[in-house]
Design a protein around this nucleic acid. Structure first.
Length: 295
DNA sequence: TACTCATGAGCAA
DNA sequence: TGCTCCTGAGTAG
C-alpha cells in the first residue's frame, strides 16, 4: 500500500482542498451507490488518517472509512494545493500500479486533466468526492464504507498507536512497547500487526528491522524494551519523513534506485556486510533481510 | 489472451 | 495456514 505515510498524505490533501466544502459524492462504478447517497450533498468536516485507515467525517456525523488495501489509489484533479510549500502536488496517491503519472509543477495552482472539468472517471472509480473545482477519485480500495461515529471509534480502538496521529508520542510508544514485548510471535510479524503498531507495511517492516539490525525471527518477548522503544522512535521519524516526501525514504540522500536497505534486494549484496540479502515467506508475505547484519 | 504480481487484511478451517 | 477480495500493469505465449 499504500503504507501509513500515503494515507496521511491523502488525508492532508483532502483537508486542504475539500474539507469545509459541500461535496457531490457519487460512485461511478456503482458498487458504492448506496453509501455515496448517504453522504452526498453534505459538508466534509474533517479528514484524518489513523494507521492505514482514512476517516472522512461529514456534517451529519457519518464517517466515510477507506482502506486502500494492496491496490487502492486516489486521483486528484482540479484546484490542488501542493502539500509541500514551494514544491509540487502529486495528483495521485496509492498503489504504484494504480497511480496515475499526474504531477503539478511548481506554481501551478490550477490543473485540469484534458479539456473538461470534471474529468470523465477512468477505470473502476468506487467513489468520487467533488467540489466545484476539485475532484478526488478512489479506485481499488479494500474497504469503502459509511459508518456512524461509534462504528468509526470501534475501528480506531482496534488499532495500535500511530506516531502521526497522536498528541503524546512517548505515551503512545509505551503502548507499542508493551504490546510488542508481551508476545511470543516473531517481531517481523508483530510490526505488521496493526493492533500492535499502526501504519507499517511490508517495506517499512523490512527497513525498520534492518536499521535496528534486528533478526525478524526474534520473539517479541525477547526484544528488550529499549530496542522496542528505538523501533517506535525510528518509525516515528521514517513516517514523518515519508509523509513529507510523499515516498518511503529509509536511506537519506540515496539514489531513487538505491533507496532501500534490503526491501526487494534478494540476492544483492547487503549494503553494509556484502552478504546476499535473503527473502523468505513470513505469515504469507515476502520478508527481506540480511542474515549477517540482523542478529 | 492468459497469467502473474503488488507497499493488505479478514475469514474459515 | 490457506483462500479470498480489491484493480490494473507487465510479461509470456
Amino acid at each position: 500500500m499504500p503504507e501509513g505515510h500515503t494515507v496521511h498524505r491523502v488525508a492532508r490533501q483532502l483537508a486542504q482542498d475539500l474539507v469545509g466544502r459541500r461535496l457531490a459524492v457519487s460512485s461511478p462504478q456503482g458498487r458504492f451507490a448506496a453509501g455515496a447517497a448517504r453522504i452526498d450533498g453534505q459538508v466534509l468536516v474533517s479528514a484524518d488518517a489513523v494507521g492505514k485507515h482514512l476517516f472522512c467525517t461529514f456534517e451529519s456525523g457519518d464517517v466515510l472509512r477507506v482502506h486502500l488495501g494492496l491496490y487502492g489509489a486516489w486521483d486528484f484533479f482540479g484546484s490542488l494545493t501542493p502539500l509541500t510549500p514551494g514544491g509540487f502536488a502529486v495528483g495521485s496517491m496509492g498503489a504504484p500500479r494504480l497511480r496515475r503519472a499526474v504531477r503539478m509543477g511548481e506554481g501551478e495552482q490550477e490543473r485540469a486533466i484534458g479539456e473538461a472539468f470534471p474529468p470523465e472517471p477512468v477505470g473502476q472509480v468506487r467513489v468520487r468526492l467533488a467540489s466545484e473545482d476539485t475532484v478526488a477519485d478512489l479506485r481499488g480500495p479494500a474497504a469503502c464504507e459509511v459508518l456512524d461515529p461509534d462504528g468509526a471509534a470501534a475501528v480506531i480502538a482496534r488499532l495500535g498507536p500511530d506516531p502521526a496521529s497522536t498528541d503524546d508520542l512517548a505515551a503512545a510508544g509505551e503502548v507499542m512497547v508493551a504490546r510488542l514485548t508481551s508476545r511470543n510471535v516473531a517481531v517481523g510479524q508483530l510490526l505488521m500487526d496493526q493492533s500492535v503498531v499502526a501504519g507499517i507495511g511490508n517495506i517499512y517492516r523490512a527497513e525498520l528491522l534492518f536499521r535496528a539490525r534486528l533478526d525478524p525471527h526474534t520473539p517479541g518477548r525477547r526484544v528488550p524494551a529499549d530496542v522496542a522503544r528505538a523501533l517506535w522512535d525510528d518509525w516515528a521519524v521514517l513516517l514523518a519523513e515519508g509523509i513529507r516526501a510523499g515516498a518511503i525514504v529509509t536511506r537519506e540522500d540515496a539514489d531513487p534506485d538505491e533507496r532501500f536497505w534490503v526491501y526487494h534486494r534478494t540476492g544483492l549484496p547487503c549494503r553494509v556486510s556484502g552478504t546476499p540479502v535473503v527473502v523468505e515467506q513470513m505469515a504469507g508475505r515476502a520478508l527481506y533481510w540480511c542474515p549477517v547484519c540482523q542478529v
